[in-house]
């Protein structure tokens, strides 16, 4: 039988809240004996997406963001629900990771990580909330193995 932890939580829309939440998810992943890499990649994506909402949605830092997530031996999934104005982070043009240094501009890398590391990413505006869902199956493709040599 698959082990899994399903959780629903809320955090204040303040960046200081994010590392605390991620530390808790990492601990839950360890308790459930899930592959560290899988949980670490989920946490990086949550860091990027939550901070995106915190930075761009114009929420007061007493507003809360809802996070529903599932850590399973077969994969991980999460849904971020925020009450900000409609904003689809997937609509932004992809970042050019092959551009030379002087042409590189900050921004867009967070969403690039999410698209690259997760198997599924979906945005939906429902009622007065943005909902972003991400998921990754265990052992699924999409990301280079952490120890893989640089190929370029």
């Amino acid at each position: 039988m698959a082990t899994e932890a399903i959780r629903s939580t809320r955090i204040r829309a303040a960046s200081v809240e994010v590392p605390k939440l991620l530390a808790r998810i990492e601990a839950e992943g360890r308790d459930a004996a899930l592959p560290e890499q899988l949980v670490a990649e989920l946490c990086l994506c949550l860091d990027e997406l939550l901070n995106n909402v915190i930075d761009h949605a114009g929420l007061g830092d007493e507003t809360t963001i809802e996070l529903n997530y599932r850590l399973g031996s077969d994969g991980v999934a999460a849904e971020i629900v925020d009450p900000g104005p409609p904003f689809d982070p997937l609509a932004r043009p992809p970042v050019d990771i092959d551009a030379p240094l002087d042409a590189r501009v900050p921004g867009g890398l967070g969403i690039h990580f999410v698209r690259t590391l997760m198997d599924e990413v979906a945005y939906e505006r429902r009622g007065s909330h943005n909902r972003l869902r991400i998921a990754k199956r265990r052992g699924a493709g999409g990301s280079p193995a952490i120890s893989s040599p640089t190929t370029s």
Partner: peptide
């Protein structure tokens, strides 16, 4: 370290830095 290297690779930073 591994996590930092992975993020550098995903970003193309290993080619510009």
């Amino acid at each position: 370290r591994p996590q930092v290297r992975q993020v550098f690779e995903l970003s193309g930073f290993t080619r510009i830095i």
